[in-house]
Design a binder for these strands. Structure first.
Length: 430
RNA sequence: GGAGGGGUGGGUGAGUGGUUAAUACCAGCAGACUGUAAAUCUGCCGCCUGAAACGGCUGCGCAGGUUCGAAUCCUGCCCCCUCCA
């Protein structure tokens, strides 16, 4: 590298954006030329409103978009209200059911609320696919499809695999990349952003643009974030995701639960920590002169702060330390009311002497004999009574720091009940 | 139009009349160990009653039927897949 590039120079800022946390740029040279031209670029990002939840996996790409925005480029957000009806075929086998117009609208709103937590709304243009596809006729469809062959589409990895395995590929699924490509034509995209699994679709966009006499868009592919399980890509259907709208303490906890091996990747893709610092951490980790746990706490803090702010992030950290490191009860827990206890006591009395430990005569009691399993079910922490009983048997339930041995249990006002590691109930004081 | 295969618990997938609430694996939950990491070990993993159960209920696409007894047999229906044309 020449020394010129190391100086802080606004016109060079974008060079960094092409390096960090990027899986592939097609075509990189052209991308560089575009950026050098100094013209504000039209950055296309589409989404499918059949699944409106944004998680950290999506955030990887959104952060990149945001960074380009900050250099003055324009984001075009495409609401895939038509492709939503087809269902995203990438990797998955299931054909999704069609959504009603209202559902799509509601999903789109939910999506955008989350989207703009990362993306600057001012520099974003939102367009709906129906703006052009609603006018599409069969003739248009024929024209569009006639430009491509089945063989071309079978080149796509997941189609090829399914075809080879004799598994079904719906015709509408073949339409999906075409529609996405046509979006690029409509909005005259300069760059399309997506995860590496979007490569094929984005490339179809390039081809179609060329056929329609437009300049080809560049394709910016982001690595897929590995989910909390440490194995598969983060996705809602696999349940290994951290959602953008997750409350601070949960978000913090989920980050803490990722395997150490993912930590540096998360730092790289999801935080602004400098490359130098990243390098330093990497080194220290491999030399074992930094505690992975402390480093991960920093990661969790950084991530939570991005979505909830500094103060809530620190609070989440304090809560985490309290509950999981010191094993104390959380500050706030779901409350069990006295009414519930009274009701349960009636229920479980069954011939046992009506009274156990009461308060002063004439005063309401401070302690109740209840069925613990029933209490857990009624409070909604556990699905069934059987499950609750199993948990008790497995010594997973604690009442005021002592393990509950059997189902019949004395519960006092103000008691804390813990189920497993993370479920808590607090009995009302009065 | 023809031939064949299949629909089983969150997923994959055994089971072809009775110790089958249903093998196994994955996921999940809990305990031990810990850093809510990894690895490891152990237990659980339909619902209800119960201290517990070899107690009851529901359950193998849907609806009926045969049988002392059916996920397993019969009838009808719905859905899916493959191959040939």
């Amino acid at each position: 590298m020449c020394s010129k590039e190391e100086t802080v120079n606004p016109s060079q800022d974008w060079r960094r954006l092409l390096k960090r946390g990027v899986a592939e740029i097609i075509v990189e040279d052209e991308m560089v030329k575009l950026l050098e031209s100094g013209r504000p670029l039209r950055l296309k990002q589409g989404f499918d409103p059949s699944r409106p939840d944004i998680h950290l996996g999506h955030v990887v790409g959104l952060r990149k978009l945001r960074q380009f925005q900050e250099l003055g480029h324009q984001v075009i957000l495409i609401v895939g209200d038509w492709t939503a009806q087809i269902g995203d075929p990438s990797g998955q086998s299931a054909t999704r059911s069609m959504l009603s117009a209202e559902e799509v609208r509601a999903n789109a709103e939910t999506y955008m609320r989350q989207f703009f937590k990362v993306i600057n709304r001012e520099k974003t243009q939102v367009v709906w696919q129906s703006e052009w596809f609603a006018k599409f006729g069969l003739a248009d469809v024929v024209r569009l499809t006639s430009k491509f062959t089945v063989a071309q589409f079978l080149a796509r990895d997941d189609f090829a695999k399914r075809f080879a395995a004799g598994r079904p590929i719906a015709i509408t699924e073949l339409l999906y990349p075409l529609m996405q490509a046509y979006d690029s034509v409509q909005v005259q995209a300069d760059v399309e952003f997506g995860g590496t699994d979007q490569k094929f679709n984005c490339l179809v966009g390039r081809e179609l643009q060329q056929m329609m006499g437009q300049r080809q868009q560049q394709v910016f592919l982001m690595p897929l974030l590995v989910g909390t399980d440490g194995v598969q890509k983060m996705s809602k259907s696999l349940g290994n995701y951290i959602a953008v709208e997750e409350p601070p303490d949960q978000m913090y906890g989920k980050v803490m639960s990722i395997p150490d091996s993912l930590m540096m990747g998360y730092f790289e893709l999801l935080t602004d920590i400098s490359d130098d610092e990243l390098e330093e951490y990497r080194k220290k980790l491999s030399e074992q002169c930094i505690s992975p746990m402390l480093l991960k706490k920093r990661l969790a803090r950084e991530i939570v702060a991005q979505f909830h702010g500094e103060a809530p992030a620190l609070e989440a950290e304090a809560g985490f330390e309290r509950v999981f490191q010191k094993r104390e009860a959380p500050r706030e827990a779901q409350e069990v009311t006295r009414e519930l206890l009274e009701r349960l006591q009636e229920f479980s009395r069954r011939g046992i002497e009506p009274m156990v430990a009461m308060g002063t005569v004439g005063q309401p009691p401070r302690e109740y004999l209840v069925s613990l399993s029933l209490l857990l079910v009624e409070a909604g922490v556990v699905k069934s009574r059987g499950e609750a009983k199993r948990l008790i048997q497995q010594r997973a339930v604690e009442v005021d720091d002592s393990t509950a041995i059997n189902d019949d249990c004395r519960i006092s006002l103000g008691s804390t009940i813990r189920v497993g590691k993370r479920r808590f109930l607090k009995v009302a004081e009065d």
